[in-house]
Each structure stands twice: as C-alpha cells, then as structure tokens.
C-alpha cells in the first residue's frame, strides 16, 4: 500500500476519521463462543436485543473475514492454542472483546485446566464483566469499542504497532497461591487474610 511507506512522516487526519467511521460501523464479529457466554452472545444477536442496530450483526465463522473477535466463555488449556491460531489468522485491523468473567480472568474456574484470563496470551481491547454478561452489557462493549476505534484508529494501523495504551501488559498472576491450598471459604480466617502486594500474607 502506498500509504504504508509514508506512515512515519505524514499525518492523514481527515482520512483517518473517515476510515474509523467506516470501520466502527461495520464490525464483523468472529464469535469464539466456548461456553455459557456463547448463548448470551446468541441472545444478543437474536430478536430482542438485536446487535444489528450497531452494525455488528454479520457474524462470520471464518477468521479471515472478521475484524472483531468476541471470546465468549472460558478458554481451557487445550483450547488456547486454537484461540491463538485463530487470532493470528484474522487480518488487520482487528480487535478483541473478552466477554465474561471466565475469559477475562478465569472466573470461578480457578482450576488446573482453565487459562486465567486470555489477556495473558493474546491482546484484548474491551473486557466485559459478568457471569455471563447480559446482552445489554455486550452491546455496551461494542459501543465502547466503537468509541475506541474512532478515538485511536489510524488508516495505516499505526496504533497496532505500539504496545498498548498503558505502559505494560498484565503481569503474570500477582500471587500464585500454593498448589495444595484449598479455596478460601468465607470465614476461614487463617487463609482468608488479604495478601500484600509483594505476596506476603
């Protein structure tokens, strides 16, 4: 692309705006639906909530045709290589919504098989809390992502060259609890004490 070589020295502000406007209103989601959140994703697409109002109804199951990956549901150890491969297959510009507590942080599944947050292994733009999030929340996430695209997008994709908006990616698990430890039940004061940031109890 001709603009590619100029991207370091030329600013194309108005063209950026136009491209952003086009991109944000025609997001094509790639529903990476693994679990419960996938059903809420289907509900978002169905008649009552109707994601088509925000121009994101064209769900394509082929990663080559998509620019927004919605990871809905927990990602198990066996699934993560698949997720990474699909993310790499998507063409630029691309964004990622991490839908639900399990995709964002592992949620209630703090077990041997579940990845504790996909953002440890692929970049994420918008996190949606909830287990599972209501369809309204997912719609809000799409709106937020549209705002982000309008604000930061460039026609040459310069924003993807930088690391992130914040200086460092998420750290590895702040405190990896000792493996033998049981889940802290409410009232178990011996182990429920808050941990200090450096990991000391």
């Amino acid at each position: 692309m001709a603009l590619g070589g100029l991207s370091e020295s030329v600013l194309v502000t108005q063209l950026d705006k136009l491209a952003n406007w086009v991109r944000k209103n025609s997001l094509w989601p790639m529903p990476f639906a693994t679990a419960c959140c996938g059903i809420e994703l289907m509900a978002t697409g169905a008649s009552r909530h109707d994601i088509a109002r925000f121009g994101a109804e064209a769900m394509r199951f082929s990663p080559r045709q998509c620019d927004l990956m919605i990871v809905a549901g927990r990602v198990a150890m066996k699934m993560l290589p698949v997720l990474q491969r699909i993310w790499l297959q998507m063409p630029e510009p691309k964004w990622c919504i991490s839908m639900g507590a399990c995709a964002s942080s592992g949620g209630v599944f703090d077990t041997y098989a579940v990845v504790q947050g996909i953002d440890r292994f692929i970049p994420v733009d918008v996190y949606v809390p909830g287990c599972p999030p209501r369809p309204e929340q997912l719609l809000q996430a799409v709106i937020d992502l549209q705002a982000k695209i309008q604000r930061t997008g460039t026609i040459t994709g310069k924003e993807f060259q930088q690391q992130r908006l914040w200086p460092h990616p998420p750290k590895p698990l702040a405190v990896e609890l000792p493996p033998a430890e049981k889940i802290v039940a409410p009232g178990d004061f011996a182990s429920a004490t808050r941990l200090q940031p450096d990991g000391r109890p």
Binding site: M77, L80, P81, Q84, W87, L88, K94, Y112, A113, V114, V115, Q116, R120, F121, I122, P123, F160, Q161, Q162, Q163, R164, P169, P172, L173
Partner: peptide, 12 residues
Amino acid sequence: RHNFPVITRPES
C-alpha cells in the same frame, strides 16, 4: 495452565 507463548499486538 501458564505454559503457553504470549502473542502481543505488534506480533499479530
């Protein structure tokens, strides 16, 4: 569960 490569924005 942590034993995977990390993909960052510039790489993908």
